[in-house]
Amino acid sequence: MPNFGRGVLVALLLLIGAGRACAQEVFAIDQRFGEIDFRVSHLGLFDTTGHFARFHGDLTIDATAPEKSGIAVEIDAGSVEMPWANEVDLLRSPPYFDVVAHPAARFASTRIAADGPNRFLVAGSLDLRGVTQPMMLHAVLTGRHHDAQGDVADFIVTGAIRRSAFGMTTDQSFISDRVELIIHARVILTAAAHAQ
């Protein structure tokens, strides 16, 4: 399971209010306010962006056993969305996300390290199309506020993968191998409904 660097744990405990995080707590990532976007380049001439409409995830913080803390996200691969319906069909097909054989993509962190104030490096692994590869994400805490869900924290998480590493090798002449990820995540810090 994932583990935090000690500094990160302190930062995250401060984030949620140290008094409450005396045992393992699980905080939901609220997909209603989140977005997982991906972007590819075409011949270096222009970019195309798509996103996943459905995903869910948890941020687990365990004050007593930091190594049990981490982030796990599951993405519904079939919820891929593009501006044009034909593009969606293409991306769901076997050469791309192959959503019938692999309906879900999963990310699980293995280590989270501080990378400056409100910045975190999240190392983990991505399981996509049945292939698991290591992946590094950069998370920035962009804001905290109190709203109808309670206390929430907004993050922008970025990273990049090479799609060929996951066996998605089709049409490399036109679609870049490098896929950038831009994730807007909102973590609900009010743990009442989510604590274990």
Binding site: L45, F46, T48, P83, W84, A85, N86, E87
Partner: peptide, 15 residues
């Protein structure tokens, strides 16, 4: 107006 937003590149270079 096309849903697939592909730019119009005159001679492949001028957007």
């Amino acid at each position: 107006t096309a849903p697939a937003q592909v730019p119009t590149l005159f001679l492949l270079v001028v957007n």
